[in-house]
Amino acid sequence: MHDDGLIDTNVWLSAWPTRGSWAATPRALVAKLRRHGVVSAWTGSFDAALHTDIAGVNARLAEACARDGEGVLVPFGTVNPALPDWEEDLRRCHEVHRMAGLRLLPGHHGYQIDDPRLARLVEFAAQRGLPIQIVCSLEDPRSPSPGLIAPSVPAAPFIDVIKKIPRARAMLLNAAARPVAGNAALLRRFADAGNLALEIATLEGVAGIAALLESAPTLPIAFGSCAPFFYFESALLKLQESPLTPQQLDAVRHGCARGLLAAASAR
């Protein structure tokens, strides 16, 4: 059972300006992830949220994952469709850095989730077989640094975007907080889109994974920790808190993530 290991779809390098980190180095991050059975960690860079040289951030991310990732850290570069010539960033992520996917931060980069430029980016990524991750939030909006808190990204409008690009594959990060997880109708719309997944880093409520699957049994749900911003153990213990069938557990641990990559690259 669980021979295929654990895939963490929501991992970060570098430091968030307002927080310390339990992982002082990429190697420390990898050591802990491996100790808990993580075989693959989809990894973005916090620098992508605030730095203006996104291409430089992506290059450093790729280098760090190659140098220190021990085959576990899988870089997901960031493209900002509000910047001039973002298409070149996308090309480099794919052709130069050989990244497996992209991680977008609309809240920090100042565009809406239904912005036509984002739809175009999703289309281009789909043509290259790259799945898209969209970060819906990082800091609790009630936290003390209002200058650094980006507006939460409402996930619902993205459904209409992704449904128009059926060959695209996308995952919403930090989107499963209460307003979404408690909305069964919205969860079913996510599931019905057919090419959209959620992960569990911000999922709350007791037995939250089981509750999500009860609301939307076909909704793809992946494991995500938002480490090292969050404690990795908080996500890991959610797998135990929910009563899941072996099939459900395997899907969350690795099946959903593998399926997303495979489907995207098969386009």
Binding site: G205, Y231, L236
Partner: peptide, 18 residues
């Protein structure tokens, strides 16, 4: 703060703390 919060997410903060 269950049941609105997850037991797991909150226990994990203690388990993962340095």
């Amino acid at each position: 703060d269950a049941s609105g919060r997850s037991f797991a997410s909150q226990i994990g903060r203690v388990l993962g703390a340095d």
